[in-house]
Computed example of a mutant assay.
Amino acid sequence: MIHVIDASNAPRYEAQLQEHFFIRHRIYVGERKWQALERPDGREIDQFDNEDAIYLLALEGSRVVGGTRLVPTLRPHLMSEVFPYLANVRGLQRGPDIVEWTRIFAIPERRGASHTVLHSVLAGMLEYCLQNEITAITVVMETWWMPRFLELGWDVVPLGLPAMIDGMSCVGAMIRVTEAAWRNTLAFKGLTAPVLHQAASTVPQGQRGILHG
């Protein structure tokens, strides 16, 4: 199951949050060689791992096997502070019903066609957004993700032209949150809804807003 963790319940998940920071370091620094993220304590933490962050962690018992992070776009986030030029065509997309998505992962032994962790995290993200009146997700991603998202039936809109970042072709994009996208993601791996362990909303009241058309 995918557990929703934010400032309201983070103390109950302290061990899992710390484990997930170590896993992120092993994946993003060790495997992917993003050396700018290296830290001597072996945890991958940046300025957006703060009280605004919402973590969706896939747990097997108490063990972290996958996860991702959402950040409200009305607060400083990766695209607004570091990569605004990736939205140089349609501009930054910000609103109470838009979140930014970063740092998705599955541990090595839970990857591949026979595993469902990654798609469970994706489905959990969409499920969380549908429950909390979030209509769109922005993301800085490598361009090779685009066909994978289209295969899931997602509505993905580039916000700017691709750019090379540390030798990788990257693009800023907005993903529209729809029930159809969620159901397609579930069906792709034969997942059963719901995938969220905690179905109740964790979005602060001030972050909610009416749906955009």
Rank of each mutant, 00 (worst) to 15 (best):
Val121Arg: 09
Pro96Tyr: 04
Val177Ala: 06
Gln93Met: 05
Glu151Thr: 13
Met141Cys: 15
Gly160Ile: 09
Asp49Asn: 07
Leu150Thr: 07
Pro40Val: 07
Asp155Asn: 09
Ala136Asp: 07
Ser8Cys: 05
Val89Ser: 06
Glu31Ser: 05
Cys129Ser: 13
Leu191Glu: 03
Ala136Asn: 02
Trp34Asn: 08
Pro194Gln: 14
Val121Asp: 01
Glu109Trp: 05
Tyr55Gly: 06
Tyr28Phe: 10
Gly209Val: 08
Asp41Arg: 14
Val4Gln: 01
Ala193Cys: 11
Gln207Lys: 02
His115Asp: 09
Leu211Arg: 10
Pro72Asn: 06
Val89Ala: 08
Leu196His: 04
Pro84Ser: 15
Ala200Phe: 05
Ala193Asn: 10
Ile2Asn: 01
Gly61Val: 11
Ile104Cys: 05
Phe21Val: 02
Glu151Pro: 00
Ala58Phe: 01
Cys170Gly: 08
Val117Arg: 12
Phe149His: 01
Arg90Leu: 14
Met168Gly: 02
Gln131Lys: 13
Ile23His: 08
Pro40Leu: 03
Pro84Asn: 10
Ile54Lys: 10
Glu51Asp: 15
Ala173Leu: 04
Pro11Tyr: 09
Gly67Pro: 07
Ile104Ala: 06
Arg69Gly: 07
Gln47Met: 11
Glu31Asn: 03
Glu127Asn: 06
Phe188Lys: 08
Ala36Asp: 13
Trp101Gln: 13
Val171Tyr: 14
Trp144Met: 00
Glu60Phe: 00
Gln47Val: 03
